[in-house]
Design a protein around this nucleic acid. Structure first.
Lengths: 342, 342
DNA sequence: CTGATTATTGTACACGTTTGCATCTGCATA
DNA sequence: TATGCAGATGCAAACGTGTACAATAATCAG
C-alpha cells in the first residue's frame, strides 16, 4: 500500500487542526494570535484539537510574514570561561524573559568565524546580534544594518556607527585598583596582564598605569601569555621570583589572579593577604572560593543587560556608547588599609 | 511625501538581486542552491549583485519549504557551571562544524521551564533537542515526535522510547573511585554528595557504595545541600570535623571536591594528598589548577558528542541507550598507592 | 419588527524561498 | 536537415502563517 510516504508530511499544520475542529484555518491562526477576534466557542474547539494533535504554531512561517523573527544572536568565543559563561547564562535568561529566543554562535578558533557568525545571523533574520568577543568587519556591519539587524558590542570599542557599544569603565577600575593597593600600604606594586588581551583588558592596564604615574609610583609590568589561569601561574612565578619581589599585584582578570595566588601559595609558600595583596577583575565564581577570597571588580552585568535589551527593543536606536561603573568587591586578598584614607 | 514608509521593506530579497542583475528570480535561488543548474555567466552576475546589495538567503523562508530548519535546540540549566559550560562550548562548536545552528534555551529557575523550552523548540521546527538537564513530560515528548523532532537526553535515564539517552558509565566510575581509594591505603572512606543530585550523580554514589559493600568496607555518607562548591565546603567541614575523620573522600562532582579540599586546607590545615585523598568527577578546568590538582574522572565528552551528532543526522534513528566509559584522570589529590595492586 | 451596530467568520493575498515541469537554446550526431 | 540531447531558464505551485477586507451572523435600540 502507501509505499511512497511523502517524507514532508511530518508536521502538524494549522489546517489539520482546523479540519479536526471543524472550523476554518484562519480561526486557528486567530486563536493563537493575541488580540485577534474569535468566539469563545471556536477558540475552545481549536485549543482542544490542537492539544490532541500536538499542534504548535510554526514560528518560521509566522516570522516570515510578520518580519519579526524574535531571534537574537549571541556571538562569543571561549564560552567555557567563567566570566563568559556567566554572561551568557544571564543574557540568555533575560532574553528569554523578554520573549526572545537566543541563537548561540561559538566563534572560538580562527578569527574569520565572527564574520561567518554574522552572516549566519543575517540568514536567520536575527533581530539583533550581541557580540561578546571579536569585532566585525565594518562593511559586514553595513550588510547587517541593510537587513534591519541591530548590533551590540560588549566590551569592545571600535568606531561602529549604528551600534550600541557597552561595557564597564575599565580605566576607572584600573585607577581604583591602584589606589586600593597604595592604601593597603604596598611598596612594590606590579601589574600582571595577558599579552593577547582584548581592548577592554588593555584599558584596565592603562588606567592602572596612568594612576600610578599620577601618584608618582613605579609599577612593574609583567605581560605575557593568554588570558588564562595558566598564564596567571606563569606571570605570578616570574614576578615573585624577582629580587625586588612585589607585595601588591593588580591582575587584569580574575583567572590571572587565581593563577598568581596559586603561584604564590604553591610555589613560594606565600599567602594572601599577609605576604601579598592581589586584585582581580570580573568577579567570577572562583573569586568567592575560600582558597582565593579575591578582592576584585564585579562587571555591572545587570546594568549592561538592561541597557542592551532596552536598546534592542526600541524602534530606531541611535548609535550609542555606554560606560558603566564596575563595582569594587572587597574580600580578603588585599591587606587591610594601613594608610589612612585621603 | 512618502509619509507612509512601509516598515516591512527592510530586507533584501532575491527579487531585488534578480532585478539588479537582470536575471530571473529563480536564477538567484539556484545560484545559492548547491547542485542547481545555472550557467557560470548568470551565477557570476548574481553573486556580484548579491555582494553589492548585501543579500543573504532568508533561511526562515528556505526552511519553510524544505522542511529542514538546520536548528538544534540545546536545553540546559545552570549554564555558568564549569562542566556545563564546557559541554555547551563543545557541543555548539561541533554542531556548527556539522552545519547546524544552535538555539540555546536556559532552563534555570522553575522546573516548568523545560516544558516551555521544548514547546519553543517545536515552534521553531528544531531538528533535534539535546537536553542537558531536566527531563520532559512523556506526553510532551510525543508532541515532539509528532512534529518530526529528535530527542537526546544527556546524563539522564528515563524511559523514553524514540530518544537517544547517553552519558558516562557512572556506576563503573563509582566503583573505580572506591578501588583507587583502597589502593591508596585509605582506612576511613567517605562519600560527599549533594542532596539535590541528578540521576546521573546518584548513580555514581550507588556504584561507589555497591563496590564498598562488595569489598566489605564501611563508607561514611555525607549527603546535603546542592551540587555546588559551597555545598562541598559544608560537606567537607562536616566530615573533617568528626571524631573518626575520614582519610579518603569520593566527591560526586569536581565542584564539591574543590569545596572539600578548600575546607580541608583553609579550615583544618589539612593537605591533599598527605592528610587526605580526594577524588572528584567531571574534570572541570579547576581540577587542573595547581591549588587543587584533583584526581577525577573525565566525562567522555567527545564520544558523547560524536554519537549525538551521528544519531541526530540519521534518517529514522531508533531508540537507544548508550553508556560510555569515563576516563580516570590521575593527578595528585590521592595518596600514591601504598597497597600493591591485585 | 426594522435598521443600526458589533462580533465573528471567510476569502484572498502576501511573506521569501525551493522545485517539478515545460520551454528554449545550442550543439553534436545520424 | 532533421533528430536527439544536455544544459540553462522561466512559470507556477508549493511551504505554513498573518491580516486587510468583505461578508455574514448576532445583538440591541427604537
Amino acid at each position: 500500500m502507501s509505499e511512497k510516504v511523502s517524507s514532508r508530511k511530518q508536521q502538524v499544520r494549522a489546517e489539520d487542526v482546523a479540519r479536526h475542529a471543524g472550523v476554518s484555518r484562519v480561526s486557528v491562526s486567530r486563536t493563537f494570535t493575541p488580540g485577534a477576534s474569535v468566539s469563545d466557542a471556536t477558540r475552545a474547539k481549536v485549543l482542544k484539537s490542537a492539544e490532541i494533535l500536538g499542534y504548535r504554531v510554526n514560528r518560521l512561517a509566522s516570522s516570515l510574514n510578520r518580519s519579526e523573527s524574535g531571534i537574537v544572536a549571541l556571538v562569543a568565543a571561549e564560552i567555557d570561561t567563567p566570566h563568559r559563561s556567566a554572561m551568557i547564562a544571564e543574557l540568555s535568561d533575560r532574553l528569554q524573559a523578554a520573549g526572545k529566543v537566543t541563537m548561540l554562535i561559538n566563534t572560538s578558533g580562527y578569527e574569520e568565524r565572527v564574520k561567518d557568525a554574522l552572516l549566519q545571523a543575517i540568514s536567520f533574520r536575527t533581530e539583533a546580534a550581541i557580540i561578546l568577543s571579536g569585532a566585525p568587519d565594518p562593511s559586514l556591519a553595513d550588510t547587517c544594518f541593510s537587513n534591519g539587524m541591530k548590533l551590540v558590542l560588549i566590551n569592545r570599542e571600535e568606531d561602529f556607527p549604528g551600534s550600541l557599544q557597552i561595557g564597564p569603565d575599565n580605566r576607572a577600575a584600573g585607577k581604583t585598583a591602584l589606589k586600593a593597593l597604595l592604601r593597603a600600604g604596598c611598596k612594590r606594586i606590579a601589574l600582571a596582564n595577558s599579552a593577547n588581551a582584548t581592548w577592554s583588558i588593555v584599558e584596565r592596564q592603562k588606567g592602572f598605569i596612568a594612576a600610578a604615574e599620577e601618584a608618582g609610583v613605579d609599577v612593574l609590568c609583567e605581560v605575557d601569555g593568554f588570558t588564562s589561569y595558566q598564564a596567571g601561574l606563569e606571570l605570578g612565578t616570574a614576578l615573585l621570583d624577582r629580587e625586588d619581589r612585589p607585595d601588591g599585584i593588580f591582575c587584569t582578570t580574575d583567572l590571572i589572579a587565581c593563577g598568581v595566588i596559586d603561584a604564590a601559595r604553591q610555589r613560594f609558600g606565600l599567602r594572601t593577604p599577609d605576604d601579598l595583596s592581589v586584585i582581580g577583575f570580573d568577579n567570577i565564581q572562583q573569586a568567592e572560593w575560600e582558597g582565593y577570597d579575591l578582592t576584585t571588580f564585579a562587571q555591572p552585568t545587570d546594568l549592561i543587560i538592561d541597557k542592551c535589551l532596552e536598546w534592542c527593543t526600541t524602534e530606531q536606536p541611535s548609535s550609542e556608547t555606554v560606560k558603566l561603573p564596575a563595582k569594587f568587591v572587597w574580600r580578603n586578598s588585599v591587606q587591610k588599609a594601613r594608610v589612612p584614607m585621603r
